[in-house]
């Protein structure tokens, strides 16, 4: 049980996907201007991440390792993720229209989100079982959401701040992210390595 807890906290805070591992920076900078869209994007990423994590975990164990096809990893993972996102989009549209309206516009963007392929590759390197994989994915997804929501909150306030012209836009966003990253580095050591 404590292992699961450490995996969760490790993915959520200590090795935060955005601020420590640098995965998913594009949506982090692109979709963090409003709190509401940030929450939507975060939820969509968490959802797809968990699904993709489980599917690629199974593929790694039962297909790539079993048949000695490890060199196909990159090609296979990206195709599976792209297909999965398409499938999720169709499924939600048909079956859960409420969720589709909330997450719909973010789904196509997620295919090229390096956090999704990143988590698939990280899981492939680790020796997690299925439950640990799920916990790791949910933790990482919520960590992404947390970073995105904090960033959106700060950026909403920043609209009214007098920022030097050259720093406006990406410049100040990156420096803000840097300061957040310093805060998050305070979590290092929370989990025994």
């Amino acid at each position: 049980m404590s292992t699961l807890f450490f995996i969760f906290i490790g993915a959520l805070l200590v090795n935060n996907f955005v601020l420590v591992r640098f995965l998913g920076i594009c949506p982090f900078l692109g979709v963090s201007k409003q709190l509401e869209t940030a929450v939507g994007m975060g939820m969509a990423v968490t959802f797809v991440m968990t699904l993709a994590g489980v599917v690629t975990w199974a593929l790694q164990h039962y297909v790539l390792n079993a048949f000695g096809l490890a060199f196909l990893q990159t090609v296979l993972f990206i195709l599976v993720i792209a297909a999965l996102v398409q499938f999720v989009e169709l499924f939600l549209k048909k079956m859960v229209p409420v969720l589709y309206r909330a997450l719909g516009i973010f789904l196509p963007l997620i295919t090229t989100n390096c956090a999704i392929l990143g988590i698939a590759l990280l899981i492939a390197q680790r020796e997690h079982d299925l439950i640990q994989t799920v916990v790791f994915c949910v933790g990482a997804g919520l960590g992404f959401t947390l970073a995105l929501v904090i960033m959106a909150g700060i950026r909403e306030e920043m609209q009214f701040a007098p920022i030097p012209k050259s720093l406006q836009g990406a410049g100040i966003a990156l420096i803000t992210a840097g300061l957040m990253s310093i805060a998050f580095s305070g979590f290092a050591g929370l989990v025994p390595m």
């Binding site: 050259s166 990406a170 410049g171 990156l174 420096i175 992210a177 840097g178 300061l179």
Partner: peptide
């Protein structure tokens, strides 16, 4: 060389490039 340095350096470099092109 730690993660925060990456964000902060890139932030200032982007600002410098903006300044030069303006």
């Amino acid at each position: 060389v730690l993660p925060p340095g990456a964000f902060i350096t890139l932030g200032f470099v982007v600002a410098a490039v903006n300044l030069i092109s303006r």
